[in-house]
Design a binder for these strands. Structure first.
Lengths: 348, 348
DNA sequence: CACCCTTGTTTAAGCGCTTAAAAGATTGCT
DNA sequence: AGCAATCTTTTAAGCGCTTAAACAAGGGTG
């Protein structure tokens, strides 16, 4: 239908010619309007509108050596923790007029690396990364190129980077304390083996809460993995015990496990949640909705993590060369009470 | 700590000098290695590694006039429909080696516009947009600049763009038919007024299903809005009727309403879900987890929408100038059965 | 009225890369 | 040895923008 085939977008030169001024004037109209008389500015604006001119950002950033965007690579957008982080980062970055570009690694290390490379090549102002495990190579490459970067939720020694962490021990502590405060006495901590660092920290927190409380007992139940199915398996195992031998409050190290347990207990009529057994998750992941009950959970405060990360990044970006000192910010988690926990029935 | 302050990243020229070759050779090593003898290539690669050279994408895309990324602007990442779309788009775009950059408008029209402008200035190969309402201005600006773009989930006349839609009438139809097939007779359709196009289409689908089925009755219940609270209000209203006067199957036009109803019925002990009343949502939004029961829902197939959109976009990008004809692809929704619906108890 | 400010506009030199075309090396063949 | 054909490398001209510096044209001043 369009008879006129736009070969290529109009350039500043086209605008300049059309408006009868020089190219520098066009640039000034766009970037430093105060340097231009209102009359010419008006003409130039008219030309821009008429021609549908759009500034070529590649040329601009080549000429200036700057970009106005920062890149964020997320491990998995299906996990609401990362979406929250993106929100927080957005907020922190908006405040100074930068734009946040998102790349979803979708649990694929190669893709994470691709995005890092992309942002590196695009010379973004800085990079926010919530790395998957084993991301050291990519992280170090980025670092060695001198690009500002801050890591989210990656607790590993020897990384030369600002980092935002959540206090995972506190996560476990809050979860267990909530159960104890609502009258639960036999606390179960359900988790996989501790090869994964946050699991270990949460365990320590749970142990501390139980110890502090005095009256309660702790049973640690190990699963193979961290998924819904592992929770189902735990529920099955629990079903084979006499009711008195079961925990009356469970801290599940992931929301998926928690939902699995709730589902398993429910469908096999093993126990009522929260009547017989209260369950607390440890992530407050919005997307975990496979369970039959709204989950009480300790929430990782992704938004605050993202915002803190953005602030650290800006700090690094603005530090005079060589002046920057890496920091680690630890965000405190918070408890969100929903339907999967309740005060223990008297005398049970 | 680092004594040497990297002023600026090394350029191709630095690499060339270091390797003792010309800059064109470096470029060739990177882009057309077959044109270079293995010996020099090796030297150049060594120099690249040694200097930590990273190709400046701005310069590259300025020189070539191309980019390898396409931009996607999402209305709201908190809504899993859009996350799914991103997944689908990723898949479609990966297939041809392009990179997907995401911008989250987070329900803010200004931000959506900012991202569109950003991608426009970055001369991305194309744009995928799931527009919020009233996005015409932004869409048309983009169009007039000749940038390939496809719209997701935006059913509006007069937009000169490829579009991917979901068959919303089918959404309503599937939801209602499921209720009827599981023995429900008194179907309630809960929705706000039809100013919002998908609401209307879903209503039509529900009506059709009820009509076709013969034995069932339809009651249309209007809410002010489309949120959780509106669902709660409906539950309250239902609670004031005698049980026999209530629907035994409800199609809620959004998941939020559905969850609100389920929650309201549950906490006020009005009725059992799904025992007394089955409830179906119309989005299958992963993030809607406020309800007490896992929701049966018609799923909008965001992944397929995203992938279809990517394919349409590639089609437009590859079409010889002026040859492209806009198309609309309609994706069929699918039913996902969970705990909020069940076969009606006999004799009820 | 020669001089210095302002204010507004243009000139021109890049930014770091790609790429067609030119130039050099090598090789094979007569 | 001489020459064409082939392979490898370099030269050089941009891509579209920014920006320091040069220039022009009016005013005040003294």
């Amino acid at each position: 239908m369009p008879a006129k085939v736009k070969k290529t977008n109009p350039s500043m030169l086209d605008v300049a010619r059309f408006a009868g001024v020089s190219i520098a004037t066009v640039s000034n109209v766009i970037n430093r309007p105060e340097k231009v008389s209102e009359a010419t500015a008006e003409q130039v604006r008219a030309a821009i509108a008429e021609l549908g001119f759009v500034r070529n950002d590649a040329a601009r950033s080549l000429a200036t050596g700057t970009t106005s965007s920062i890149g964020m690579v997320l491990a998995d957008l299906d996990n609401s923790l990362f979406v929250d982080m993106a929100h927080g980062a957005q907020r922190g970055v908006d405040a100074v007029g930068l734009r946040l570009l998102l790349g979803n690694a979708a649990c694929d290390l190669t893709r994470q690396d691709d995005y890092l490379r992309l942002f590196d090549e695009a010379r973004v102002g800085g990079v926010l990364l919530s790395p998957m495990e084993d991301s050291l190579a990519g992280i170090e490459r980025m670092r060695s190129h001198g690009r500002p970067m801050v890591l989210l939720n990656y607790d590993q020694d020897g990384i030369d980077c600002c980092t935002v962490l959540v206090d995972n021990e506190e996560v476990g502590y809050l979860a267990a304390r909530h159960l104890i405060e609502t009258g639960r006495k036999r606390i179960g901590f359900v988790a996989g083996r501790d090869y994964y660092q946050p699991v270990h920290a949460r365990r320590v927190g749970v142990q501390r809460a139980v110890r502090e409380a005095g009256g309660a007992r702790l049973e640690e139940i190990d699963t193979g993995g961290l998924d819904f199915e592992d929770g189902l398996a735990v529920a099955r195992a629990l079903g084979e015990r006499p009711p008195g031998q079961r925990p009356d409050g469970i801290v599940a190290v992931t929301d998926d496990i928690a939902n699995g347990i709730a589902e398993g207990l429910h469908t096999a009529f093993v126990a009522e949640v929260p009547g017989d057994i209260s369950i607390v998750g440890c992530e407050d992941n919005r997307s975990a909705r496979s369970g039959p009950v709204a989950l009480t959970a300790v929430q990782l405060e992704g938004v605050r993590m993202g915002q803190a990360a953005a602030e650290l990044l800006l700090e690094e970006m603005n530090a005079p060369a060589g002046e920057h000192r890496h920091r680690t910010v630890t965000v405190r988690p918070g408890l969100v009470v929903r339907a999967s926990t309740a005060v223990a029935p008297l005398g049970v």
